[in-house]
Design a protein around this nucleic acid. Structure first.
Lengths: 235, 235
DNA sequence: TTTCATAAATTGGTTAACCAAAATATTTTT
DNA sequence: AAAAATATTTTGGTTAACCAATTTATGAAA
């Protein structure tokens, strides 16, 4: 899922060149939604790259919903028109790897929302899981150990309780990067870990009491220091 | 990236069973961050599944940042501990496919933010692209044609101007699903398309004038009807 | 000519053999 | 015994042959 970007086609990876060639082919042949792409073998021969490369390019475009492969039948242009196809491929080819600031910015946005939604939609079972995470986190901190993982599991539990599978997925995608970057930048020190226990408890209580505004407010406060810290760190 | 979910291990896909076995192996062998997993061939033999299935499972866990494969060397446990590893694999295995409501909810959240950020960070080049999208949309609508694609390209241009690669990526992920679902549910009729032209123009002006609050406010208004419509549609 | 059955060709997916780089074991040299 | 050089094994990645389902082409029957 990694992409290297520069403006000259020279500097694109083989896969990206193939993606661009597929786009040109769709344009040139005026392929419309539902039309069939040439077979992987033909594309392999035409573009002079191994079939595996063609497959990877197709799979990437399939991930973004632009193509659809059907076994023993063919690969088909998705139900979006030429204009959106071109625009989206442009965007995909120019996608940059996420930087830390972008990750934190997005995380805060998502978590303010998931805490609200969790307060509205949480089940009793959700509360039990969250409480477990809460206690695991407190135990680690009071034992003087690093508790970044337990911290994030609590937040993931909230995401799950928000009953929004898309936000849940996005939280899962950014979490590991956050964890590794946390270690790199030493964001959380012992002092903030202790205050974190109380802040977590307050968020939990608000969600338990089904008070969305309070949950969001407390989550915002929880992120306050992180936010300020991160915006002073370059990269 | 599709997942079928039920609570019994019986109903899990082969890949999910393999992921669960890898998790158990990490737990049982107490593998810590940086430790090497057994080779793909050994896992293939141990779990009695083809190596390709092992590879796919590893790649999925790699996508979520839990493992890291290094050529001619091995697959390594990422720099997150056992607790987070278990929690995240739980989440991954219980991930549901995104429903329409969840998609729209997330889209609105993202777009309110990207419009704010775009107002703060947009370059002159961004404005040119947005203006092009604006005019393409207007032209299609005034010609009586369907303009869902041009509509979404305008929104993607805003996402790009927000200079947040994570949100940009997320917008790209949900856009195609939104497009296809729009068609399915006939969300946009001709009338709302005409008012859309003016709403787009207003958002563009606010971003051009670098007024984040106004941009967000106008984006919110733009989504008002969609929001109400979607929350009355089941699934 | 049309329709249906049959056979050949084409499709994406899968598998097993292969590759080069890396890691390890062995041998040789000092 | 230690160090260096060499051979072997192991690794994830790649490729080409293979597979079963599908589609298309062909021909026989109506």
């Amino acid at each position: 899922m990694k992409v290297e970007i520069l403006n000259l086609m020279e500097n694109y990876s083989v896969q990206e060149k193939v993606i661009d060639k597929i786009r040109k082919l769709i344009n040139h042949k005026n392929l419309e939604p539902g039309d069939k792409l040439p077979s992987e073998r033909m594309l392999s021969e035409k573009f002079e790259v191994p079939r595996s490369t063609i497959r990877e390019a197709i799979q990437k475009l399939e991930f973004y919903g632009l193509l659809k492969s059907i076994p023993q039948s063919g690969t088909f242009v998705a139900n979006i028109g030429v204009v959106a196809m071109n625009g989206m491929i442009d965007d995909i080819l120019s996608l940059e790897d996420p930087d830390f600031k972008s990750l934190v910015e997005t995380r805060i946005l998502l978590e303010l929302k998931t805490s609200r939604l969790a307060a509205l939609r949480r089940t009793e079972e959700d509360l039990v899981i969250m409480k477990d995470c809460l206690e695991a986190y407190a135990a680690k901190v009071e034992n003087g150990e690093d508790a970044v993982q337990e911290d994030l599991l609590f937040h993931l539990a909230i995401a799950r309780a928000s009953r929004n599978s898309t936000m849940n997925t996005f939280m899962l995608i950014i979490t590991p990067e956050i964890i590794t970057n946390f270690g790199k930048y030493h964001v959380c020190d012992k002092a903030s870990a202790y205050s974190g226990i109380e802040e977590h408890r307050l968020i939990y209580e608000a969600i338990k009491d089904q008070d969305p505004q309070l949950a969001k407010k407390r989550m915002k406060k929880h992120f306050n220091e992180l936010y300020k810290y991160c915006y002073n760190v370059e990269l």
